[in-house]
Amino acid sequence: MQASKRKETLAAYTFLAPGFVLFALVVLYPIARAFQISLYHWSIVPGTTSQYIGLGNYTHALHDPIFWRALENTGAYMVFTVPAQIVLGMTVAVLLDARMPARGLYRTLYYLPVVTSWVVVSLLFRYMFITDGGLINFVLHDKLHLVGHNIEWLSHRWSALAVISILGIWKGIGWSMVIFLAALQTVPRELKEAAAVDGARAWARFRAVSLPAILPVIAFVTVMLVIGGFNVFISVFLITNGGPLDETQVLLTYMYRQAFSFLDFGYGSSLSFTLTLIVFALSIAQLRLFRRPKDAA
């Protein structure tokens, strides 16, 4: 018995080893390494030495106005995109959660933006929001006459962030929808159908029947979207590249520029390590927060 136990353990480690070694090398070690680098005035050029400066890079960040603006912009991106993706994704999921023709087709079409590459959709949105000759200004100005002149979308901080956020929402609705839809389908159908027929009280029923059942799923989606929000990079990088005037810099674009345009690997690492800590703290806090009502019930 003892011997077979040992054999089992050995087998387990054999199964685990190749993958875990690679994972440790490519993911875990860099996490630790990011922290180490962030404590140095890191010198990447061959033949020069790095200088240990303790938390110097972190205090530098605290006094760097662009860091704070990047943090603000990242926060704004989340405020714009996370609730919108949840509400719109949920709305579409609820609408699709019924017997109706071509349901699968609708689901597929809503999901298309999710599987499309960020590079492609970012360039596409930049093109659509071009000031003179872009599709959006054409619709708003020439067709609907909602605005008096062509809006210079990408020339100003908030309108540029709006474009980036709209892209984030457009690309993300399908993802939350699919998950909500799957969750809703675990709720007994009779209860929901009663709610659907009884129009006036549909919302009340939804709150009473479906919502509590899928609350953990909402928590999961929220956590993932918040992490995704911190991860916003490609859209900003390709649409504004932080401009004009660093106005639309988010944490990751600023980190990338520090490292790969200014060779300040130490400062860049301190930014990404800070971000990693924020992501951890938020995910854990959110999970706790959303679990409480369920535990109490």
């Binding site: 210079e152 020339s155 004009p244």
Partner: peptide, 12 residues
């Protein structure tokens, strides 16, 4: 002057 002076990506 067109607005591309402040944002070269923003227009024609």
């Amino acid at each position: 002057m067109p607005n591309i002076v402040v944002d070269s990506n923003g227009g024609l």
